[in-house]
Amino acid sequence: MQRRTNVRLPPEVNRILYIRNLPYKITAEEMYDIFGKYGAIRQIRVGNTPDTRGTAFVVYEDIFDAKNACDHLSGFNVCNRYLVVLYYQSNKAFKKVDVEKKKEELDKVKTKFGLNSDERK
């Protein structure tokens, strides 16, 4: 396998892929079959809670293998579901927590000032 030198990748490209829209019953072995064709995989984590079902993380050994897999498997049909393959971005992974926290703060302010969204109706 030839090494690529002096190739500039976009900043969002990394070795960790985040996959959505997976069939709920997919196994780690099936994930290795699909994603292993594009290079050596360090780890696969398939979501197993109600919030994470249908998602997975795939960590490649090499960033170019991850890019190749992302380019080729986005939209790939698995059991009549089209995969959504994204690069994992740690700064976006915790946005949901921030949104929940902001909602709690907003609710506290509404309560403090006697504002209730149900009263507008």
Rank of each mutant, 00 (worst) to 15 (best):
M1D: 05
M1C: 08
R3C: 12
R3P: 00
R4G: 04
R4K: 15
R8K: 11
R8M: 10
P10C: 15
P11E: 02
P11D: 09
V13W: 06
N14S: 14
I16Y: 08
Y18F: 11
R20H: 08
N21R: 15
L22F: 00
Y24D: 09
I26F: 03
I26A: 07
Y32M: 05
F35S: 02
G36R: 03
G36W: 01
G36I: 12
G39F: 01
G39E: 12
A40S: 07
I41F: 02
I41A: 12
R42K: 07
Q43P: 00
N48D: 15
T49C: 11
D51V: 02
G54T: 10
A56Q: 09
F57P: 01
V59T: 12
V59P: 01
V59A: 10
Y60R: 03
E61P: 00
I63K: 03
F64H: 04
K67L: 03
K67D: 08
A69L: 07
A69W: 01
A69G: 00
D71V: 11
D71Y: 01
H72W: 01
H72F: 03
V78T: 09
N80M: 15
V84I: 15
Y87F: 15
Y88I: 10
Q89V: 02
N91F: 11
K92S: 04
K92A: 12
K96M: 08
K101T: 02
K101N: 03
K102V: 08
K103P: 03
E104K: 05
L106K: 14
L106T: 10
V109T: 14
K110M: 09
T111V: 04
T111Q: 11
K112W: 12
F113Q: 05
F113D: 00
L115H: 04
L115A: 10
S117A: 05
E119G: 10
